[in-house]
Design a protein around this nucleic acid. Structure first.
Lengths: 193, 193
DNA sequence: TAAACTACTTAACCTAGATTAAGAAAATTA
DNA sequence: TAATTTTCTTAATCTAGGTTAAGTAGTTTA
């Protein structure tokens, strides 16, 4: 188990001194998740954000009719959390689980805020990640308003070619907002044409 | 014209010294917009973020068929920008215009980054605003995936009671993602029941 | 004040995508 | 390896919401 992936990720934004690195390191917790193991549940306070070292996680809601709606996939090198619950420390509305066996690093909100005080560059690091994440949610809203299901599917394939290969089709359907049956229809039409 | 609204907003997060306040103030630009005046256009680099003092702005895209899709309304006390273009300083994809006569304060990205260096508390201020904004876009994605148009309309009414009164109905339709005709139908059904 | 837009409504008709159901193919688990 | 569960496909049917169109009312502008 190595945290290298995280430190390389951070080093793209700023350089840590050895002291800072050790301090940050001391706040992190490592965890392994089995396939389908739930890391965060609805109505539970999401205490930490997770950085994925290996495997793949996903966040999703379950609506009143029991249907899952996937918000985000997190392959290695991505952070994932229930941002609402993480920042407010109130009970959240989403689930996060592991799509496959995964290794993650956890950072609690309290420790994150503490690190912001001690090492301001970390506040910048997370500010930038949050800005980027905001932009991608915003794109998702726009796509939902202006694209058809077929267009959203093609866009997904273009943006996440790696995920397409390892995800069950029904999860892609859930992410783009169609039923698995309809995605199957979309795909069979593409093949013929 | 007074910037009080902005300084009160900031003071909810942290206290500025007189020196900091003056420095920040020196970076701001004031602008008046007429009704329907465009502040930011597609394909243009969005140099600044705007804080609304009075009036109301909106951000939207125009799709290939010429239809507008509203992303955000910004009444007084809100920030609005094309976050993608603002952070990347690349040509953007959205429009921002004034729904009514408005007064805004502009802060350029360059000045913002400069302020982050000089007064780290501002990095915190914008980090927090960005986190909150991320959460609200995320909710919007979830609602789009799991709610019907009727439910999204009622949710809009509950969350933005003030906007309901001053916005033309077709703009609410555009925000929740339905045609004006269908929103009209929704509203007439509600009245009868 | 009239002319010209723009916003809203209503209604008939249409379609993208949902639902239901049933079988085939993978993937897990025993 | 067989048994079980999960995923994917296909097809018939249904519906939320879109489209088109025409009329009304309210607002700008000349």
């Amino acid at each position: 188990m190595t945290l290298d992936l995280l430190f390389v990720n951070i080093s793209k934004h700023f350089l840590l001194t050895e002291v800072e690195k050790n301090y940050f390191h001391s706040k992190l917790h490592f965890r392994k998740l089995k396939k389908k193991e739930i890391y965060i549940q609805e109505n539970q306070v999401c205490e930490s954000a997770a950085f994925v070292l290996s495997g793949c996680l996903r966040s999703y809601t379950i609506d009143d009719n029991g249907f899952e709606h996937i918000l985000q996939f997190a392959p290695p090198d991505w952070w994932i959390t229930d941002m609402f619950s993480f920042i407010s420390q109130k009970p959240g509305t989403i689930y996060i689980d592991a799509i496959e066996v995964s290794e993650i690093i956890l950072l609690s909100r309290a420790d994150q805020l503490d690190i912001f005080e001690k090492i301001p560059a970390f506040e910048r690091y997370f500010r930038i990640l949050t800005e980027n994440s905001l932009v991608s949610y915003r794109k998702r809203v726009m796509d939902g308003l202006s694209l058809t299901a077929v267009e959203r599917y093609h866009d997904f394939c273009k943006r996440y070619p790696t995920l397409i290969e390892c995800l069950p089709q029904k999860q892609i359907a859930s992410y783009i907002g169609v039923t698995p049956e309809f995605l199957s229809k979309i795909r069979s039409k593409v093949k013929i044409v």
